[in-house]
Simulated scan of single mutants.
Amino acid sequence: MYIVRDIFQLKFGHFKDVKKLFDNMPGEKMMPDATDMRVLSDFTGDSYRLILEAGFKSLQDYEKSLSGTMGQGDWQQWYGDFKQHVESSHREILKQVF
């Protein structure tokens, strides 16, 4: 099992706008097709972080989800609105060993 975390540092004061984008996300298939998907916010540490965490059985499954979901026009339009609120981001890909 692989865990992929996309960690977005949001611009100061933009969390409510981003929450609205996620609440009003069009369609059911806008998020990656993962075995486990969570959207998290910071509790401690850097403020205004949004973390998308998804589980995949293999890296090949992760790659398929990227080309499938993220290639759609609706997703591209939604992401264009989302990235206006992002200061920076990074990705972690972790392998579950236990």
Results as ranks from 00 to 15, higher is better:
20 K>C: 03
73 G>C: 05
11 K>T: 01
72 Q>Y: 03
93 I>E: 02
7 I>H: 09
30 M>P: 02
39 V>H: 04
21 L>I: 05
10 L>T: 03
47 S>I: 02
53 E>V: 07
70 M>K: 08
98 F>L: 13
92 E>P: 02
22 F>W: 10
13 G>T: 01
83 K>W: 06
88 S>T: 10
69 T>E: 05
68 G>L: 15
23 D>S: 08
78 W>R: 05
72 Q>F: 06
46 D>V: 04
52 L>D: 00
52 L>S: 09
79 Y>K: 14
46 D>A: 10
57 K>Y: 01
5 R>T: 07
30 M>Q: 14
1 M>K: 11
82 F>S: 08
3 I>A: 12
27 G>A: 10
76 Q>W: 05
88 S>N: 08
92 E>K: 13
63 E>W: 04
48 Y>M: 07
48 Y>T: 01
23 D>M: 11
11 K>H: 06
25 M>F: 12
28 E>R: 15
69 T>W: 00
88 S>R: 12
39 V>D: 00
61 D>S: 13
8 F>K: 01
10 L>W: 00
40 L>E: 01
90 H>P: 02
26 P>D: 04
42 D>M: 07
82 F>V: 01
36 D>E: 15
7 I>A: 05
45 G>D: 05
44 T>F: 14
44 T>G: 07
62 Y>K: 14
38 R>D: 08
94 L>K: 07
26 P>T: 05
19 K>V: 12
26 P>I: 06
40 L>R: 00
59 L>P: 01
69 T>G: 03
32 P>H: 06
14 H>N: 03
82 F>M: 08
96 Q>E: 13
58 S>M: 00
67 S>L: 10
74 D>Q: 11
27 G>V: 09
13 G>N: 04
96 Q>H: 08
5 R>C: 06
1 M>W: 00
84 Q>K: 15
77 Q>N: 13
71 G>T: 09
62 Y>E: 12
21 L>C: 08
58 S>V: 06
48 Y>P: 01
63 E>D: 12
5 R>M: 11
33 D>G: 10
34 A>C: 11
88 S>Q: 05
35 T>E: 15
22 F>T: 04
77 Q>G: 06
27 G>N: 08
59 L>A: 05
73 G>N: 13
12 F>E: 05
